[in-house]
Design a protein around this nucleic acid. Structure first.
Length: 553
RNA sequence: GGCGACGUAGCUCAGCUGGUAAGAGUGCUCGACUCAUAAUCGAGAGGUCGUGGGUUCGAGUCCCACCGUCGCUACCA
């Protein structure tokens, strides 16, 4: 066994502006949780952190529209998100928000360090302003007629009709999305992060990342071609956000959400270390991950986040001193729902809440795990989820456990028999299960979780095949001793396979822990003879979709 | 417009740095079995690997063009 590694499992920060959907779940949160659980079983020290991103224009604008405070909006959705993590069994070491005082302080400290290091400077630029609501407008909040296709509701950054990229000044008859007023150009002063200082270092950094997924590393490298990263403003004209730690700019300005949100990985690690969730009690424990070159940082994000995590965040870290850079960014592609991109706004059966009404958590986790968009966009539907559950999870794994536990209960006095088998087929089955651990380890190492799930399924199939070949229900009548050897072997196979499934199916594997005992680690343990085996109840129920779901989903 | 990824059996997907006669699950057909949630196991049928060129002794795998899908394009996050 190798020494434990400190693994940081960093997960994209969900924006607390609305409900999350299964695209988010399959894209980042579920794979992160599966990976973290396996790494813990493998004996590594895992720190899995994230939180709700609470700042930014959309939340401020929405609050204004509803006549409530931004914090009200945040509380509503943060609460909903946290509850869903609970229901789904997402095993955070800490799930916090960017709204804490601690996070603000860490952000400000990092800002000051980078300022001192000469990577932040002040610049003046023109920005559109809505005179009616007295607010500076992001490009997206300016609408007008597209100069290319004449579409009337083109946004300042892009025309939804002809998909061309625009600049707000391109729009004919521009108007504010907020009030309809004609935007005015106003001069405004902001702090800029000198991302261009880091182009060479970033190229070096990405040099040895050829084992990353092609769409991740190619995309990141593409940004660095030609002139590379440009300097970007990291403050905004808005009153909802983190205070700038120097007051040169005057009031009405805050730190830009994207600059602060990624700092959450660091601030949340520190918050965890100082909290009672950290059993060591050492408030400096976060340094074992962030100031330790031997630690491993894995970022689970959707593909829309690649530039921020592969480029901007590393550049911010480089400018702040000696902090650990991302080692791996297994960004997922998108889940599509019957061919369409999943979006919470389109409603119809694809928010996490709606899915949880129809499917049990482990069943949903299984179906999504089997369809993770690791290489390419992956299409899914309620019928497909139900099929995965009924034809694969229930039939192969659920039924295997049920048939073996039933036979042991009936034929072995309701307890684990003390009759390990040593026939060639017995040894062969268990050897193949043990081999699966090695195979799955390599797959987890590469964050190929779909493949790891297939490895677990293969083990279940091997055990099913073994039972069909040995037929213990017949042996029971002719050779009861051999029958109990076969059942011991089959139960041993389950004892290993349930560990292979544990990262994916925490709830039902937890029920098996209660029966068979907690696994000692990422391996198949020997059975303890005499352990009581009651008549089992099925772990998973088959699902039947209502006709309505089939039509709408 | 620019950039990137993808386009492989009915369906959902694997195929790493080019090399045994193209894979998995599911579905379909046939057979075995009946311990088990009408579950399981075995066998079989099913693909000119988007299209057209090129490189190579050899390409699903590399290059070019085209078609299609999706994403990103830095002031939404």
């Amino acid at each position: 066994m190798t020494d434990p590694v400190n693994v940081l499992v960093a997960v994209a920060w969900p924006y607390a502006s609305g409900s999350r959907h299964i695209g988010h779940l399959a894209g980042a949160y579920l794979p992160a949780d599966i990976y973290a659980r396996q790494q813990r079983l493998a004996g590594n020290r895992v720190l899995m952190v994230s939180g709700s991103d609470v700042h930014g224009t959309p939340i401020a604008v929405r609050a204004e529209a509803e006549g409530v405070t931004p914090q009200d909006i945040v509380d509503r959705y943060h609460g909903e998100i946290v509850q869903q993590w609970e229901q789904l069994g997402i095993s955070w070491d800490l799930y916090t928000t960017t709204g804490t005082e601690h996070h603000a302080r860490v952000t400000q400290e990092m800002f000051l360090t980078q300022l001192e290091n000469g990577h932040i400077d002040k610049r003046t630029s023109d920005q559109f302003f809505d005179p009616e609501v007295e607010r500076f407008l992001p490009d997206r909040y300016i609408e007008g007629e597209c100069p290319h296709c004449g579409y009337g509701d083109a946004r300042g950054d892009q025309c939804d009709n002809c998909t061309r990229t625009l600049d707000p000044t391109d729009l004919l008859n521009p108007r504010s999305k907020l009030s309809g007023a004609t935007p005015q150009k106003r001069e405004t002063e902001h702090f800029f992060y000198r991302y261009s200082d880091f182009n060479d270092k970033l190229r070096d950094y990405l040099e040895d990342k050829s084992d990353w997924r092609p769409h991740v590393v190619n995309f990141a490298r593409g940004w660095l071609e030609d002139e590379g990263l440009l300097d970007r403003a990291i403050t905004r004209d808005i009153d909802w956000g983190i205070d700038i730690p120097v007051d040169d700019l005057g009031p009405g300005k805050k730190i830009y959400v994207w600059y602060d949100a990624v700092i959450g990985y660091l601030s949340a690690s520190q918050e965890w270390a100082a909290s009672d969730r950290n059993s060591s009690g050492d408030a400096d424990a976060w340094k074992d991950w962030w100031e330790n070159p031997d630690s491993r940082h894995v970022y689970f994000i959707g593909k829309d986040n690649i530039p921020f995590h592969a480029l901007f965040w590393p550049a911010q870290l480089m400018g702040a001193g000696n902090l650990h850079l991302p080692d791996s960014i297994p960004a997922n592609q998108y889940v599509t729902f019957k061919g369409d991109k999943v979006s919470a706004s389109r409603a119809v059966g694809n928010t996490i809440a709606e899915m949880l009404e129809v499917f049990e958590p482990d069943s949903l986790r299984f179906a999504l795990s089997a369809a993770l968009p690791e290489q390419a966009d992956t299409d899914i539907s309620a019928e497909e989820i139900a099929r995965r559950i009924n034809e694969e999870l229930v039939a192969t794994w659920g039924n295997l456990v049920n048939r073996v536990l039933s036979m042991v209960n009936k034929n072995c006095d309701g307890q684990v028999p003390d009759t390990p088998g040593s026939a060639p087929e017995d040894l062969e089955l268990l050897a193949s299960i043990d081999q699966s651990f090695i195979e799955a380890s390599a797959q987890f190492e590469q964050a190929e979780l779909k493949a790891a799930l297939r490895t677990a399924m293969k083990s279940a199939q091997a055990a099913n095949g073994y039972l069909n070949a040995t037929e213990p229900w017949k042996l029971q009548k002719t050779d009861p001793v051999r029958a109990s050897e076969v059942l011991h072997t089959a139960l041993s196979a389950i004892n290993g396979t349930r560990v292979l499934f544990a990262p994916f199916l925490p709830f039902t594997c937890g029920r098996l822990d209660e029966i068979l005992g907690e696994p000692s680690g990422w391996a198949r343990d020997e059975l303890v003879a005499g352990t009581p085996i009651d008549k089992p109840t099925p772990m998973f129920a088959k699902v039947e979709l209502a006709a309505e779901e089939e039509n709408s989903a």
